[in-house]
Lab assay of single mutants.
Amino acid sequence: MQRVNMIMAESPGLITICLLGYLLSAECTVFLDHENANKILNRPKRYNSGKLEEFVQGNLERECMEEKCSFEEAREVFENTERTTEFWKQYVDGDQCESNPCLNGGSCKDDINSYECWCPFGFEGKNCELDVTCNIKNGRCEQFCKNSADNKVVCSCTEGYRLAENQKSCEPAVPFPCGRVSVSQTSKLTRAETVFPDVDYVNSTEAETILDNITQSTQSFNDFTRVVGGEDAKPGQFPWQVVLNGKVDAFCGGSIVNEKWIVTAAHCVETGVKITVVAGEHNIEETEHTEQKRNVIRIIPHHNYNAAINKYNHDIALLELDEPLVLNSYVTPICIADKEYTNIFLKFGSGYVSGWGRVFHKGRSALVLQYLRVPLVDRATCLRSTKFTIYNNMFCAGFHEGGRDSCQGDSGGPHVTEVEGTSFLTGIISWGEECAMKGKYGIYTKVSRYVNWIKEKTKLT
């Protein structure tokens, strides 16, 4: 034993070699072989497995989906700052455009905790909710729209109204504003409101030439003092309507412009014939205590009207009353817009006519005020429907199939267009061939041609 100890002390290297040989010859039971080890760690190889990531292109799944990435790591994937920024906006807080917040056709661009709407022409605001041009839906104005110097929408209202708090709607500024039905039992019968379409306001006024200088022999019209197929109006439903009495009662109609003036057809009036105007009328054979009678003290036909040349060209006249009318729910003026808007309103496509005229061709006159909704007829169809001249200051309205029309005794009465609950004068009943005849239409004086003249002559002093 002493000898062994001496050998170990003198030859430590020998001992180490012996131990190493023993270990190498022993069977290893701690580690699995290569094949079995792979069965336990069965993990798919990654895209760049075996390579240094710093030297390969980034992978979106590896960089940002398996674990949260930084902007720089995302930049490695896209290799483009702009594309990385677009991805980053949604990656950080989701897609803010998912709810489609942009209105009126706006395009949404996502941002971090926010979004941006790219608005089409005519709109602005956070969600493109603000109209900035009158060309689109009248700028959301209830009545009139004008573009300011910086191309912003400025709404306005006709006389007797003021802008509401929203700067879009119009509200009454006087007790009985024009064009409004205020009798409670008839307010439910107000005709369907007309909503502004998209309009090209630059070209809204037709490029028409008034044929002022045409000389033409007097034409022989049949029954051209021209509501057939209409309905009984309720008291106060058309408070701007008046009836004219002269040699015979209810020979023509008219509309209240203001307390002192009536507008009617020029062919209705004769110099030297006494005319009485009755406002607030409903049943011409009954006294309903809503009527107001006034005498006409002055007749002003349009300066281009000449019955000797043509009885229905420039067929418009103004009547001055001896005493002002007292405005109330049964006696209310009709609204008159400017030339541009009167023309736009007419193009809405349908209007209402009213009167006490004959209820059928050569038949009896109506006792109760009649009204009828009539569609506008395109000019080409209008011209083809008659052998008589249709001037540019006239328009056609009615039904091709016949059966409904204005008729004798309705002449001078109103053709009105309702705009968001307020009625505007767009025409004056003038003439036609018979009444409600198939293929024939009622012919009306186009008020847009005469609004400046009306307003100039009827100013209240």
Rank of each mutant, 00 (worst) to 15 (best):
F348H: 07
C145Q: 03
K440A: 07
V227F: 13
T389K: 07
V419N: 06
R294T: 01
A337V: 04
Y22S: 09
D315E: 02
L130M: 14
R3S: 12
C128G: 02
L130Y: 10
G351V: 01
L20Y: 04
E420H: 06
Y441S: 03
A337H: 01
Q237D: 05
Y341K: 08
G412K: 03
E420K: 12
N151S: 09
L318I: 04
T458E: 00
V174N: 05
V273K: 02
N48C: 05
K347I: 03
V181L: 08
G229Y: 12
I297Q: 05
E291D: 04
R3E: 05
L372H: 14
T190Q: 13
T209P: 13
M65T: 08
E456I: 08
K188P: 14
V331E: 00
L24M: 10
K188S: 13
C252E: 00
E159T: 08
Q216A: 12
K362Q: 07
I214D: 08
G254T: 00
S365W: 09
T445F: 04
T186W: 08
F71Q: 15
K39P: 11
L325N: 00
V77A: 13
G412A: 14
L321N: 00
G412P: 11
Q90T: 06
T417N: 11
N452D: 15
G357W: 08
L383D: 07
E10I: 12
D198L: 08
E401I: 10
C128N: 02
G246V: 03
K168F: 15
K438N: 05
G13A: 12
V153D: 04
K387P: 07
V77H: 14
E53M: 08
F345R: 02
D95A: 15
E259S: 06
E66G: 08
Q408I: 14
I214N: 09
K68H: 10
A26W: 01
C382R: 03
I336C: 01
T445Q: 05
H34Q: 11
V77K: 12
F221E: 11
S430T: 10
M6I: 05
Y305N: 03
G357H: 09
P172T: 06
K39Y: 05
G402Y: 15
K109Q: 08
G442K: 06
F196L: 12
K188H: 08
E82S: 08
G13Y: 10
T264P: 00
A164F: 03
V154E: 08
K247Q: 06
Q57N: 15
K446V: 02
N393R: 03
E420P: 01
E433F: 07
K51G: 12
C396W: 01
G94L: 08
L327A: 03
E82V: 09
A37W: 04
E124V: 14
Y450R: 01
K457W: 08
N104C: 01
V30G: 15
C119Y: 02
G230C: 12
R373A: 12
S184Q: 10
I262E: 01
W431L: 08
G94P: 07
A250L: 07
K45D: 08
C407N: 04
L163R: 04
C178S: 01
K339M: 14
G442W: 04
Q370H: 14
G21P: 04
M8C: 14
G355C: 08
Y305W: 12
R364Y: 07
N245L: 03
S187C: 05
A397N: 01
A173T: 13
P177Q: 01
D212M: 09
L372Y: 13
N452A: 14
S184E: 12
G432T: 13
A164W: 03
V353A: 08
P239N: 00
S204N: 06
F360M: 13
W356M: 10
R364D: 13
N328V: 01
G280D: 01
G363W: 06
V326R: 09
V416I: 08
G229Q: 09
G409K: 11
W88M: 15
T386Q: 09
K247Y: 04
K459H: 12
T16M: 15
G106D: 02
I334D: 00
A149I: 11
P239W: 01
I40Q: 15
S187I: 11
P12A: 15
G236L: 05
L211Q: 12
F424K: 00
G355E: 04
V447G: 02
D110F: 10
I454D: 01
R180Q: 06
N222E: 08
L369V: 08
N213T: 06
N166T: 03
W88V: 13
V331Y: 00
Y312H: 08
C435I: 03
L376I: 13
C145H: 01
I136D: 15
Y161L: 02
V447P: 03
V359C: 07
S255E: 02
G122V: 02
T29M: 14
L189W: 09
N104G: 04
T290A: 05
A233H: 05
F224N: 12
S107L: 07
K446N: 09
L41D: 09
E165Q: 08
C252I: 01
N166M: 02
E76Q: 10
S184M: 06
Y201A: 09
T81G: 13
C335R: 01
V248P: 02
G439L: 03
P120H: 08
D198K: 09
F424H: 00
L321Y: 00
W453H: 01
L369P: 15
Y47F: 11
E76V: 15
N313R: 13
T215K: 06
I214G: 06
S255A: 05
G421N: 14
T264L: 02
A37N: 05
E66S: 07
G160L: 00
G13R: 05
Q143E: 00
G398D: 03
A26C: 12
C141V: 00
D223V: 08
G106P: 02
W88A: 10
Y115H: 06
P301C: 06
F144Y: 08
Y201P: 09
W88D: 15
P235L: 08
K234W: 13
V183G: 08
Q241I: 12
F399N: 13
R298I: 00
G421L: 04
A265T: 03
A149N: 12
D200V: 11
I112F: 11
G427D: 00
C141T: 00
R404S: 15
E73H: 09
V263E: 00
Q216V: 12
A266T: 01
P324K: 06
L367Y: 11
V263H: 01
K89N: 10
N138E: 07
A149K: 10
Q57T: 05
T389F: 15
D212T: 09
D378M: 04
S385V: 13
S148T: 15
K89D: 13
Q185T: 11
D95G: 13
E129I: 03
L52Y: 15
R364S: 14
V359I: 09
G160T: 10
P414S: 08
V269Y: 04
G125D: 02
G403M: 12
D249Y: 01
S187L: 11
K188W: 12
G122W: 03
D131S: 12
T133R: 12
V199N: 12
C268D: 00
A266R: 03
G236R: 06
L41N: 15
E142Y: 04
T215M: 04
N452C: 05
N306F: 04
V278H: 05
I316D: 00
I429V: 13
F176T: 07
I40H: 15
E208N: 09
Q90I: 11
V269E: 01
N104L: 02
Y450I: 01
C335H: 01
G349H: 09
E418S: 15
N310G: 07
L52W: 10
K457A: 11
T215G: 06
F395Y: 03
G402K: 14
V416Q: 07
H314D: 05
L60W: 05
L325Q: 00
C97E: 02
I256N: 00
K274V: 04
S220Y: 07
C407T: 05
N80R: 07
E433V: 05
E193R: 07
N166Q: 03
R83K: 08
D338Q: 05
W118Y: 08
G421R: 13
R373I: 06
V77M: 10
T225R: 07
L244I: 06
Y22N: 04
Q57Y: 06
Q90L: 07
E76W: 05
R83Q: 14
V451Q: 03
W356V: 10
R384S: 07
A337Y: 00
Q90F: 11
V296I: 06
I300C: 03
C407P: 05
M65C: 04
R404C: 15
L189A: 07
R373F: 04
M394S: 06
F78C: 04
H400K: 09
